[in-house]
């Protein structure tokens, strides 16, 4: 009886989707932004990204093998690579290697594996690493190199970011907003004399290409990114109308800083975002609102990371209260 029949319950077919397919899909979607950062930051971008990815994958492998003592390694599912790339995208291109390694350790070790690995973490690991670094190494994390210094790494010349200017405007510097590049320049990523910000957030265009790819491949749905961007646009727009000299225009808000990166790649993380479409919309609106609040009233120029982490904490609550509409519960016509 070598040829035993296999017996199991239905369904007997599968659509061939897999965790790997989704994870590598996200990685493909990150390629345009990576290319842009390589063009703008050169060596720095390459070193930072490589360090981050390699150390994230190493820590995942090491923790799985030596601490959790699991037989099967999970590094091939691609989730650690994504965490690595996203962590790199969230730091300046002149960040020293040792800081990145610490960030990767915190991201994978504390942000992910402490909770049991893929699927169990309540917070986005890359953001846990990023916020840890931001609080521990505020100087290194907020000195942004100007773009175009392709050959330099830690020695790159730094400058203010558009977000810093926007913060100054809020604090009463009337001329600050005038120094901002135009919305179009921000959109494609050329920042003139200003610094580009973190690695991955230079060009909104590249990130939007990634979004289009992920929507086309049905890796994510439109709900989270669109609700975040729309909320930021509306809320920042209202602020702008109330005092154009202090608050930057909503379009500038959309195209600067980590907003696009966060809305498209970080907030949409499967594990830490709500499960229902209604829940996703609530989550997105709250993130958008919190981001604008932090940007305009908080101590930090950028609020995306904090907003996402705060809403990650609320995800279980949202899941509990936002149930999908059950069949047959609708009004009977």
């Amino acid at each position: 009886m070598a040829n035993k029949l296999i017996v199991s319950l239905s369904p007997h077919v599968h659509n061939d989707d897999s965790v790997q397919r989704n994870m590598y899909g996200v990685l493909i979607a990150l390629i345009p932004a990576l290319l842009v950062s390589l063009i703008y930051f050169g060596v720095g971008a390459a070193v930072v990204t490589l360090t981050s990815v390699v150390s994230c994958v190493f820590f995942e492998w090491a923790i799985t093998k030596f601490i959790l003592k699991r037989e099967k390694s999970t590094i091939l599912d691609g989730s650690a690579i994504i965490t690595g790339v996203l962590l790199a995208f969230n730091v300046p291109s002149n960040l020293p290697v040792w800081i990145i390694v610490i960030g990767a350790l915190v991201a994978i070790g504390i942000g992910k594996m402490t909770f049991g690995g893929l699927g169990c973490n309540p917070f986005n690991p890359a953001l846990v690493g990023r916020v840890f670094l931001l609080i521990s190494f505020p100087v290194q994390m907020t000195s942004w190199p100007k773009i175009g210094q392709l050959a330099s790494y830690v020695d790159a010349e730094t400058a203010a970011t558009p977000l810093a200017l926007m913060k100054m405007a809020v604090h009463g510097d009337v001329s600050a907003l005038e120094q901002l590049p135009s919305a179009w320049e921000l959109f494609i990523g050329s920042h003139g004399d200003l610094a580009g910000g973190s690695l991955g957030e230079v060009s909104a265009l590249a990130l939007l290409i990634g979004l289009a790819y992920m929507l086309w491949r049905k890796i994510i749905t439109w709900h989270i990114p669109v609700s975040i961007l729309a909320t930021v646009f509306v809320f920042a727009g209202l602020m702008h109308l109330s005092d154009p000299a202090a608050y930057a225009s909503p379009v500038v808000h959309l195209f600067t800083g980590g907003l696009m990166l966060g809305a498209i790649f970080m907030a949409t993380d499967y594990v830490t975002s709500p499960m229902t479409h209604k829940g996703m919309l609530i989550y997105g609106v709250c993130i958008g609102f919190l981001t604008v609040v932090i940007r305009n009233f908080g101590a930090y120029p950028e609020g995306m990371s904090f907003a996402i982490l705060i809403m990650n904490a609320f995800t279980p609550l949202i899941n509990n209260y936002c149930k999908p509409k059950r069949f047959g519960e609708g009004k009977k016509k």
Partner: peptide, 8 residues
């Protein structure tokens, strides 16, 4: 594999 909570 573990549930990645993708909500599909």
């Amino acid at each position: 594999q573990p549930c990645i909570r993708c909500a599909k």
